[in-house]
Design a protein around this nucleic acid. Structure first.
Length: 379
RNA sequence: GGGCGCUUCGCAUAGCGGCAAUUGCAUCUGGCUGUAGACCAGACGUCUUUAUGACUACGGGGGUUCGAGUCCCUCAGCGCCCA
């Protein structure tokens, strides 16, 4: 079980400070949640992760079900023991993969709509590689092509075996190009799945419901009302978030009003640095994002002066740390931009760890500064 | 002294009469928000009214041809072999 306590509410915004207690430790919220999809924060050891001040992690039902299988993780004593990382964990239900391996893949887009597409997804349409039905989703494993069925029952059963502190209801993350009708029907199915998840769960793990509804105000509100009325331990907000940041803020406003104040709220998959003050100001308590880890492996360092593309030759003779103002062990212990750029160009694997470490530390540090801003009444 | 071979966009390569010309690396740019992806995409001779456009280009010079990076002659540089 978890407990959540709001210890301070901002007067300037809907931001709040909270304490989330889980069987594997306490999380000071708002908190950033790094992503460990395949039971690894890519490029990092578990000890590394601890030293980045990470408070909680999220790993993935779909991927761990495919490989190594939840039985292996359960036999190891649960996700924390398996990973040798004694921290609070969430598991994503596999609902994002319904999108990312489905319509997301078909149309080559993420859940943020970047360029206006003429194409629309409408009722009855199915992704090329998946079959979505009332009971759940028929996937094909990318490892060996075998069929794999994942619905609310299966997802809960797998998540119970994985043993995270917080598990998520199985949902369909809808595409930004889904029309109102498709989004509505998908949302209603996600609601029915939410009730199945509540019924199926036997463990003492916390279960979060997931709000869908796409970019449509009526649907977002309906979804938040429905999910918010159910006895979940917390709430996650999923799905697409429009094509600009103003819409995201509006959407959060629609949704937050409908969710019980005393329970924790997790925003799924959002977390560019510039997003953080905005989402925290709307009352988000935790949020996960692949950006610091994913971008690290593309050679990007997040710093107090913006993003640096460390692949760029101009850094080859720059002997400053990634960020002179950063206190992380990469920056403070003498690793230079010059060295990291050299290693990246040489296609070594070491810089991927150095950048991931720095980025995670930097993200956590930034969120800590935002918690402090809320504490001091500045946010 | 003689013989043979090589010289193409930063480097390395392809090309064997219709070519602004292949591929790799490098370089630069763009993308990535509940991670299949240490990834993907684009540009890479110059100019402009960005086009089934102009100009300049495959070591230098000359020639054959409607047309030459491609064939011939010659010069230069590099390499190998025989003296």
């Amino acid at each position: 079980m978890i407990t959540f306590k709001v210890i301070k509410k901002s007067r300037k915004s809907k931001a709040r400070l909270g304490v989330l207690k889980t069987p594997h430790g306490t999380v000071q919220t708002p908190a950033f949640v790094p992503v460990a999809t395949q039971a690894a924060v890519k490029a990092m050891t578990s000890e590394d992760v601890l030293r980045t001040n990470t408070q909680m992690l999220i790993t993935n039902t779909f991927h761990l079900h495919i490989r190594p299988g939840e039985k292996t993780v359960k036999a190891a004593g649960g996700i924390q023991k398996f990973m040798n990382l004694p921290k609070p964990f969430m598991t994503d239900s596999g609902g994002f993969q319904v999108f990312s391996l489905g319509f997301g893949k078909d149309f080559g887009m993420g859940k943020m709509l970047k360029n206006k597409s003429a194409e629309q997804i409408t009722t009855g349409q199915q992704p090329k590689l998946l079959k979505i039905s009332e009971r759940g989703v028929l996937f094909r494993a990318y490892t060996d092509g075998r069929e794999m069925f994942l619905g609310p029952k299966e997802s809960i059963r797998i998540q119970e075996a994985l043993g995270a502190d917080i598990i998520l209801a199985f949902d369909e993350c809808t595409s930004p190009i889904a029309d109102h009708e498709y989004t509505k029907r998908s949302m209603e199915r996600t609601h029915r799945w939410a009730d199945v998840c509540l019924r199926e769960k036997k463990s003492r793990q916390a279960l979060y419901g997931i709000v869908q509804g796409g970019k449509f105000k009526d649907l977002r509100i309906a979804s938040a009302k429905f999910i918010g009325s159910r006895p979940f331990d917390g709430f996650a907000i999923g799905g697409e978030f429009g094509d600009d940041k103003k819409i995201m803020t509006k959407m959060l406003r629609w949704v937050m009003q409908e969710l019980p104040e005393e329970k924790p709220r997790h925003l799924l998959g959002i977390g560019y640095l510039e997003d953080m003050p905005k989402i925290i100001a709307e009352g988000v308590d935790t949020f996960d994002c692949i950006v610091p880890t994913h971008y690290a492996r593309r050679g990007v360092a997040f710093t107090s002066v913006g993003e640096l593309n460390m692949m760029n030759t101009k850094f080859l003779n720059d002997r400053k740390p990634l960020d002179p103002k950063c206190g992380c062990e990469v920056c403070a212990n003498g690793y230079t931009r010059s060295y990291i750029t050299h290693l990246l160009k040489a296609r070594e694997i070491t810089p991927l760890r150095l950048l991931t470490f720095h980025n995670l530390f930097f993200f956590n540090q930034y969120v800590a500064s935002l918690r402090d801003a809320v504490r001091r009444g500045k946010l």
